[in-house]
Design a protein around this nucleic acid. Sequence first.
RNA 1: GGGCCUGUAGCUCAGAUGGUUAGAGCGCGACACUGAUAAUGUCGAGGUCCGUGGUUCGAUUCCACGCAGGCCCA
Length: 1091
Amino acid sequence: MWRSLGPLRLPEWEQSILARWQAERTFQRSVARRRGGPTYAFYEGPPSANGKPGIHHVFARTLKDLICRYQTMRGFYVPRRAGWDTHGLPVELSVEKELGISKADIGTKVSIADYNKACREAVMRYKATWDALTERMGYWVELEDPYITFDAKYIESVWWLLKRFYEKGLLYRDYTIQPYSPAAGTALSQHELNLPGAYKTVRDPSLTVQFRHQTEPDLYFLAWTTTPWTLPSNAALAVGPDFTYVEIETFQPYTREPTRVILAKESVPRYFSAEGAELPLSPEFVDVRTGRLPYRINRYLKGQDLIGQRYEPLFRYVEPDGDAWRIIAGDFVSLEEGTGIVHIAPTFGADDLRAARKNAISPILTSDAHGNPTPLVDKEGRFVPQVTDFAGRYVKNYTDAPDYRPVDEDIALYLRQRGLLFRKEIYEHNYPHCWRTDKPILYYPVEAWFIRTSALREKLVALNQTIRWYPPTIGEGRFGNWLENVEDWNLSRSRFWGIPLPIWRSRDGRYERCIGSFEELREAVEESRKQGLMQHNPVMHPDFDPHRPTVDEIILVAPDGTPLYREPDVIDVWFDSGAMPYAQLHYPFENEEIFSQQFPADFIAEGVDQTRGWFYTLHVIAAALFGTVAYKRVLVNGLVLDKEGNKMSKRLGNVVDPFTLMERYGADPTRWYLISNAPPWENVRFDEKRLAEKVRSFFGTLHNTYEFFALYARIDGYQIQPLPPVDQLPLIDRWLLSEVEKLTAEVSEAYENYYPTQAARLIEDFVIERLSNWYVRLNRRRFWKGEKDQDKWAAFTVLRYALLRTAQLMAPIAPFYAELLWEHLGERGSIHESDFPSSTLLWRDLSLEESMEKARRLTSLLHSLRKQSGVRVRQPLPQALVPASYKNWLDPLTDLLKAEVNLKAITYLDDHSQAVYYELRPNYRTLGPSLGPRIKDLASYLHTLPQEAILETLQKGKLQWEGHSFSLPDLEIRAQALPGWLHASEGGLTVALDTRLTPELEKEGWARELIHHIQVLRKNAGLEVTDRIHLRIHLPPSYQKALQSFASLIAEETLADSIEWVDNPIAGLSPIEFLDSVSLYIDISRAYEHA
RNA sequence: GGGCCUGUAGCUCAGAUGGUUAGAGCGCGACACUGAUAAUGUCGAGGUCCGUGGUUCGAUUCCACGCAGGCCCA
């Protein structure tokens, strides 16, 4: 019992606690113990084990862990299941790098089956490292049966969800504009565009062209484009609704015919020189070479007013499907370049498509040989036959043809001949190129499947308002704004390693089927077998793998016998993780009851970067299909930056390895540091020096306190006993218990508010300031004094109680050391199976808390005064003087204060004593609103008030001033000074110190000085604190005589059985300097006990 | 370009429903204590509370506009 653990060695202790937890299955037991209680549902966002975990993972996981541990201690059943996110681009890219292949090689050089096999292996590469981190940091989550997104069962649940979207009409096929390489014949990912060297500076012709107003003769809209080949696909023109436009009277530069054009006011100088405004409006002043045009501004127009006006198309190869060729609003329209009017080709630009959709304008499409809709440029990058003037011509030189003639030039020529070209320039800009063929990419329409999230917008927003966000601003701002502007979710990825879209379609698009379960697929394959389209049924196989290529080989059949082929895409991995509440339980195929208990989650926690990620996908799926939220509370954490505030990255070499950290300092300090340093949602600047400091200041102090307790408890054979009734305890114990209750209440509140930073800081402050630096420091004597009486046992009991309570309060954040304390303080079982303490108001004594706080401040003032006086602390001083108004709260603490500062008395000064000066100031807070500017006059009036008037005011409790009557709460009273004494004031407290020594006090000071020297010798001699001694002492006779009257005090303090005063310096001993001037000889010898 | 967050001592962070002396810890300097001692206490130096305007008797706090850093999205 009360074993000493020696100096702090957290990493080592943590290892043995880990071993114990594992052997006793403490985590599982702590969860199981609460089964039957209310469920607190927690979802673990699945990490990808494709890379090594970093310190930021420790941060996020500490937050998750501590909330779950806290709720478990509160009595909730908190099942926690680990999961793995396994699909997606990062895995694919790493595999491609390893195999030395590119995407185009998949299916040719490497089979899809082999490729996916490699992905499946690569994605779990660091699973062991992740599991090791989870365990080492004390993150309690069930690792033995994790959910894995590539599991067939997981995928089946995802299919079921997709089919529900499909049935609700929320899953639809459309196209999206993607970077596309005609030369390579493939779409490129955003990632491929970001490869170094992808962006090249190129020179393209840029045209400013005239779109003829439909009803007003000779009025044109001027639009600017750097991709002339998209002009045949023009469907609309976009303006900025808030911009100002001008109508200008001028001449067509090439035909010199009078004309009127509209463009943005800011663009005028780009097209018209100032000189032009002065020139007569006559065609002979047109200079085609320099571009000089005479012009007049006719009128100003608001962009808003242009919207809806119609124009004649430049080309009319295809009749548009619907209401094209009009002016629309575009938020992307800029005044930096061009005319402030933007040509919109929805088939070849992402902004264009978005704007067109918003305005219900159909893209310009025609039909290919099979009758399927196609844009005016085919996948090889050639104009389709319907574009008669340019049919078959490549829009860029994709084939390296030596005689390639840029089609852009011919389009310019064509327009010029028709008087529709206003200007042609060469434009130099950065443009992305295909990294393999080095050819410019095309933004091209690619078929894709979408979730119609835009139709859910209101529901998403409304449900979000019921989610508790920590901090709230992210829910309202970042997430809320995103939802309000949400657009349809493009689910398609033309990749290989992912959950395949369970949709089969006929070539002509007349038939389509979405599959929602393996059972359904199996039956569908059976039908298709009957029709002879399939030879065997792969879904019959017990290990059916729903990945590519297996599903690609399945051909289904339409009622009329038409074969149906799978849509080739896989889905966005974010859908995988958003499906986790259902798919982790293989819902609805299994576990319906468990699902209903654990959905929605009470709590999730991830980084801010998940706003558009997991937070979003969870929300969309739950809102769309279940009409509810997926999580009720979400705690958002910021990033972990290095100590300079830079993001940690391999490139900068500032990545901190969590394992090294935990081996060096321990998991608890790492967790504690991350939690206590700053609120979770702010970025944490990680500084190892501070972590080391945390070990020393908090864990070191707490551990010292335990060691102190254990040392004396061991010596005295303290036996655990219940707390005595509070009213029988000494004041200081009652104070500590009150503080413990206060701490409990405040820490509980912090946890309840998902603000663990506050909890950690409160605990730190309690341990360092109250428990260690005040309670233990003041009570040391009670622990080592001789008698084993009630008072001593009470001290042990109260201190042990406070330590245990501290352990429980800190257990969620620092589970290891809390466990250690629990065990060593003699409690059974694991602290994590204990019930979180609730605070007892009964033990609170608010006035005692406040008085003690003041007394602590007073002590600090007195220490500072002693320091100024130059009198050693060992020298007792006669008295401290304080104003009489302190009497009520200070009286009970007098003894403590006297002992702490080594005083003989505390004297209260009468209010009328000349020694106290009072000062009155207005209470700005209460008087400010009513007095307004006159408060300054009152302040100066109070300042000039004589002392007698102040005292009179204090006595009457009232003050009259210029017709106003003030009571005491309206005035701030300060005891300002005690002239003639050594005094100090701080925060309304004033104290003076009497440093006049009487001979008697001086002698006592000598005695204490002597005791001090003896203690040093005891220590140097290596004596145990309980060893008894014999003393022989020599001092000059005058001192010797004075000290003899303190012999019993000296003997008691130093555990001396005998003191012999010797007349002469003791031979063989060197003198000790006593009181800076006197030679002292002490001979110390251990007293052996005789039987 | 848009949304959100942050800006207080050399560093990491508190704080103030707007109130006249803005705090802590670390670091730095000085001293003390010595029955927790690889612990502890006291004192000191150190601040334009990012800037500018506004509201107010009073702004570091509220409002507006900026600046800087971060995250997400274009």
